[in-house]
Nucleic acid binder design. Structure first.
Length: 811
DNA sequence: TTTAGCATGCGAGAT
DNA sequence: GCATGCTAAA
């Protein structure tokens, strides 16, 4: 059934056909300047190779040189190399750099792309083997959730208690683990009110009738095709002579299985990654995949890239010191030929605002060149936070002082409401059967077609077995809908039909005869058509009439969207592209400070990096530790490692003694990771004005002194009966607000965090939100509390404060 | 059908 | 502190 031969991908690249000897003799400029480890990783072509590439060790360089080597020596033609990345950005960069190395643009390399893009290509080709048509649509998260909402309601489940989002994430989790509905383990049977597995099965059935797939399916369907069609799999195995995988530490089970299926046989698979930078466990990534590589691929050759070209010695040593606390690493020692540079700087602040103010001042000072260093411009500086809400304090401050900044991450272009709405219009025009898109636009802008009218349409469509658009037509024609709604709906349907007829190309593809009937002059370019759709639908007007402050920006985005159409031939092509792609980075002239999350920073580098908010509970994140315990803590630690290693010359870590958390003031204690920073690579800064009035004791005033005298303090804290006194945490908390300068407290909390159960059954407690209550159960850090007013709740211990029997409260 | 007003919940986010 | 999502009123 395979369509190997008519495939563009398989034909494209036989361009050059020199003999192998001739190829081997060609010069290899891509080897120039590579260190021995890199050369090894580049030249060892056959058999499994694990390239363990530490931060800043020239991983991409080695990877692209390896591709160049495969091509230059004639080991493989461009279309015989399977090179997978996680992001489109990474794929683009790799493509560009290979082209650069080869001194020509790479014709072919059709199999360089993201897991998902490659799977789409494979699945379009073999869709019928899993009961799909090759023009299946790809649902994004939003569509997914909407579909699940319907299923949940249909099953009579209270959607309030069991939100569709949660089901979506459960099902995603299963798909990440390559679990089809029939393979859900007993341990997961209780998920989602015991209905998870059944709903999953229904969801899959529904997708099939919709001729749709979600992201997870892209992988799973291809795996299924491979597993059930030996000969086909065999053909692909032979075709993909060499496999390269970037960021292997981020692969999930499904991706691992997919790779293993393809690599079996020749085993020419080269995986590149860094176990110390595995920070996507919550997204299904399995560090285990990289840790197990040598077992999975016997005879694997492991190359360690350890020479770092990015950071100074102090920065590398500090990062190494932190990551060394993790267990079960493959182990690497980063080193540099460069200088030691500045030590990592550590500073504590009174609160988050103070921290932001100080960072702002530092950035301004860096612009002029401080500490005998060259000036660093704003675009050489990044602030990396654990959680995006931390950004607000910095944004506020930067706006106040007029410091230009940009935020990376946040709602992406194609996820914005207006863009999604506009694209739903396009989708309805392009594919009349796209019910999800129709649902989205039928009453946007408002047309007086609310829930009731939509239910009528749904019902008509379902009973007649037609799409929603058809159902709507029936509703209008049969008079099932009346009044204003019906009139508007009729007008909408007429417009959709007209837009469709104006669409160039698509008509020809479906039915040649119709072309005669239609004046070619009616057909517009897809760009003009898009404009017409947005105008005539009333969507543009909708935002023009909107008085909210976001409206102008949304109109801008719509213009941007139309502009983006220029690089595509038609709407279909554009929609296809968008369903797989997200980023829309627009570069501008002014140098700006970058504000982003630690996760978003992986792979990037900056001369100067600020790492604020190193406080226990925030970083490492309490939630992460509650959910996955040590595993979670280790992932947080890797995040710390990623953060520090982003810095080239200057790395500044900070924490605040007090922070507003969900609108409430909380005292914070320095992150345990601060204790793990090796003292000899750290310089402790004294915040201006904070300790001025406290004579003497400069050392104990320093926020970091705890880390140098850890054991003393440990004993001291233990003697102070930390573990048993229910009031101790409260005391710490209160003193923290006013006296975070005392190191014993800073250290105290670290110990305290291990002694999770400060409370025991029967204790009286106070919670900022729920008020007074008594502990009724203790389970690790999670406490069951019967609140006097708020009823029984499960809360995390740190949000509780001991109240003595009299009910006297500390605030 | 639309809207205003209160309850609820909160981490990172590619494809 | 803020965004989201539902109930109650217009």
């Amino acid at each position: 059934m395979s369509s190997f031969d008519d495939s563009e991908a398989f034909e494209a690249a036989s361009a050059v056909s020199l003999s192998a000897q001739a190829m081997a003799a060609r010069p290899k400029p891509y080897l120039d300047g590579l260190n021995p480890a890199q050369r090894d990783a580049v030249q060892r072509l056959d058999g499994p190779v694990l390239m363990l590439a530490g931060a800043g060790t020239g991983k991409t360089r080695a990877l692209t040189a390896r591709i160049a080597h495969l091509l230059t020596t004639g080991a493989a033609r461009p279309n015989e190399i399977l090179a997978v990345t996680f992001t489109n950005k990474a794929a683009r960069e790799m493509r560009g750099r290979v082209a650069q190395l080869m001194g020509q643009s790479i014709e072919g390399m059709p199999w360089l792309g993201t897991f998902h893009a490659i799977c789409v290509k494979l699945l379009r080709r073999h869709a019928e083997l899993v009961g799909l048509k090759s023009n299946f649509t790809i649902l994004d998260t939003d569509d997914q959730v909407r579909l699940m909402k319907q299923l949940i309601n249909a099953a009579g489940i209270d959607e309030k208690r069991w939100p569709a989002r949660q089901l979506a994430s459960i099902i995603d989790g299963w798909k990440n683990r390559a679990l089809t509905p029939d393979k859900i383990p007993a341990a997961d049977a209780g998920a989602f009110n015991r209905q998870g597995p059944a709903l999953y099965a229904e969801y899959q059935a529904r997708l099939k009738t919709l001729n749709a797939v979600d992201f997870g399916d892209l992988l799973l369907h291809v795996i299924e095709i491979f597993q059930k069609n030996d000969d086909l799999l065999e053909q692909y195995r032979r075709w993909f002579r060499y496999i390269l995988v970037d960021e292997y530490q981020d692969t999930n089970v499904a991706q691992y299985l997919w790779l293993r299926l393809l690599a079996q046989g020749h085993m020419n698979i080269c995986c590149v990654g860094d176990d110390d930078q595995s920070i996507y466990g919550w997204r299904g990534a399995e560090v285990g995949n990289i840790l197990r590589f040598e077992k999975d691929f016997p005879g694997a050759h492991v190359v360690r890239l350890e020479q770092n070209y990015r950071s100074t010695g102090h920065i590398l040593s500090a990062a190494s010191g932190v990551i060394a606390a993790n267990k079960g690493r493959l182990g690497k020692t980063l080193w540099t030929e460069g200088e030691d540079g500045e030590k990592v700087r550590l500073i504590g602040h009174w609160d988050g605002e103070e921290e932001a103010r100080w960072v702002g001042e530092e950035i301004e000072a860096m612009g002029h060149g401080t500490r005998g260093m060259d000036p660093i411009r704003p675009d050489g500086i990044a602030i990396l936070v654990r959680a995006s809400h931390q950004m607000r304090a910095f944004e506020d401050r930067f706006l106040t002082i007029g410091l230009p900044y940009r935020v990376i991450g946040g709602p992406r272009f194609y996820e914005r409401m207006e863009i999604r709405d506009a694209m739903a219009y396009f989708r309805v025009v392009v594919s009349p059967e796209d019910d999800l898109a129709f649902e989205r636009i039928v009453n946007t802008p408002k047309r007086g077609l609310g829930d009731k009218a939509q239910a009528t349409i749904q019902k008509l469509a379902r009973t007649n077995g037609v799409s929603l658009v058809e159902g709507a037509r029936l509703a209008v024609d049969s008079g099932a809908l009346g009044g204003k709604g019906a009139k508007e709906l009729r007008a909408l349907l007429e417009r959709v039909a007209r837009w469709r007829s104006m669409m160039a190309g698509a008509v020809a593809a479906t039915s040649d005869d119709l072309i005669e009937d239609m004046g070619a002059g009616d057909r517009l370019s897809h760009i003009e058509l898009a404009e017409v759709i947005l105008d005539e639908s009333g969507y543009t007007a909708h935002w023009q009439n909107d008085k909210t402050p976001e409206a102008p920006g949304r109109l801008e985005n719509l213009k941007e969207l139309v502009k983006a159409l220029e690089s595509f031939e038609n709407l279909q092509g554009f929609l296809e592209h968008v369903s797989l792609i997200m980023d829309n980075e627009q570069e501008d002239s002014e140098p700006k400070v970058t504000l982003m999350t630690l996760h978003a920073a992986k792979g990037l580098e900056f001369p100067a990096v600020f790492l604020p908010g190193w406080e226990d509970g925030l970083f490492p994140s309490q939630r992460s530790m509650d959910e996955t315990g040590l595993k979670g803590l280790e992932e947080e630690r890797r995040l710390a490692y990623v953060g520090i290693t982003r810095a080239e010359r200057l790395c500044t870590i900070s924490f605040a003694g007090n922070r507003r958390v969900y609108g409430q003031w909380q005292s914070q204690l320095p992150s345990r990771f601060i204790d793990e920073l090796p003292a000899e690579h750290v310089e402790v800064l004294t915040p201006p004005g904070l300790y001025g009035h406290q004579g003497g004791m400069a050392a104990s005033a320093s926020p970091v002194s705890g880390m140098m005298r850890g054991s003393d303090l440990h004993e001291q804290a233990a003697r102070a009966d930390v573990y048993n006194s229910p009031g101790w945490r409260r005391l710490q908390a209160n003193q923290g607000r006013f006296g975070m300068r005392q190191p014993s407290e800073a250290k105290g909390i670290t110990i305290d965090a291990e002694a999770v159960s400060v409370f025991s059954e029967g204790d009286r407690v106070f919670h900022q939100k729920f008020g007074y209550g008594s502990i009724i159960s203790v389970e690790g850090d999670k406490l069951g509390v019967r609140f006097d007013k708020a009823g029984e709740k499960h809360v995390v211990g740190r949000f509780l404060v001991a109240a003595d029997a009299a009910g006297d409260v500390p605030f």
